[in-house]
Amino acid sequence: MEQVRQTRNVAVLIFEQVEPLDFAGPFEVFIAGSNSGQDFNVFTVAENDSPIKASGGLSINPAYTIANCPKPDILVVPGGWGSRKEMNNETITNWIRETSNDVEIILSVCTGALLLAKATLLDGLKVTTNRLAINELRDVVPTSTEILEEARYVDNGKIVLSAGVSAGMDAALYVVEKLLGEDTAIEAANIMEYDWKRD
């Protein structure tokens, strides 16, 4: 008899001036790879329950706050212009650090790496971010952190980081493959009619 697989909670962090595709791309990937919601329960989470205004003026209502969201198994930390402000928001970075203790995987997209750096999660890891933000990342990571400027995404085990914007979708598909197998990831890419660029 096939063992029933437990649904994993995928929390997608959003904040003011988040880059839309940084969070919506991985959100869509996990939905497409969820087997109609059986494998992944995907939701947004923000510091509070006020509508979030993403880059370009897109307004999003978070499903949960960091105080009441279901316990994440996977945490997606996107980037965008707002990450430069939120990296200094200790409420957010403390929550990321605390959440990191119990999650299976953290996926950073683009300048979400800045938040992970400020949450002191990148010590000794190999990391990447948006090509245009490499120097910003270099300024906030410890000397033990190795920045891979040309990597589309990089896997440290628990922490996976991707380069900018659409690279987050590639990394999310990689996470689906890592957890549920290549066939599921390929099927998810096909559902989205997306040309998956593997690293």
Rank of each mutant, 00 (worst) to 15 (best):
I52C: 01
I52D: 00
K53S: 12
S55L: 10
S55E: 15
G56P: 08
G57Y: 05
L58F: 13
L58P: 03
I60Y: 08
I60W: 05
N61W: 08
N61G: 02
P62Q: 07
P62D: 05
A63I: 03
Y64A: 00
T65F: 09
P70R: 13
P70F: 15
P70C: 06
P70S: 13
K71V: 09
P72L: 10
D73Y: 08
D73A: 08
L75T: 00
V77H: 04
V77D: 03
V77E: 04
P78C: 00
G79I: 04
G80N: 00
G80V: 00
G82M: 01
G82L: 01
G82E: 02
S83C: 07
E86F: 09
M87N: 01
M87H: 04
N88H: 12
T91H: 11
T91N: 14
I92C: 03
T93E: 07
N94G: 09
W95M: 03
W95P: 02
W95C: 05
I96T: 07
R97E: 13
R97T: 09
E98L: 11
E98C: 06
S100K: 10
N101M: 13
D102M: 04
V103Y: 07
V103L: 04
E104R: 10
I105R: 04
L107C: 06
S108M: 08
S108D: 06
V109I: 15
V109H: 02
C110H: 03
T111L: 13
G112V: 10
G112A: 11
G112K: 09
A113P: 01
A113W: 05
A113C: 06
L114R: 03
L115F: 05
L116E: 06
A117V: 01
A119F: 11
T120Q: 14
L121C: 14
L121E: 09
L121M: 14
L122F: 08
D123C: 10
D123I: 07
G124L: 11
L125Q: 12
L125D: 07
K126L: 12
K126M: 14
V127E: 12
V127I: 15
T128Y: 02
T128N: 04
T129D: 03
T129H: 00
L132A: 13
L132F: 11
A133V: 10
R138Y: 03
D139S: 14
V140P: 06
V141P: 07
P142V: 07
T143G: 01
T143M: 08
T143P: 00
T143E: 14
S144Y: 10
T145F: 13
T145C: 15
I147W: 08
E149V: 07
E150A: 09
R152Y: 10
Y153D: 00
V154I: 15
D155G: 11
D155E: 09
G157E: 04
K158I: 12
K158P: 11
K158D: 10
V160D: 00
L161M: 12
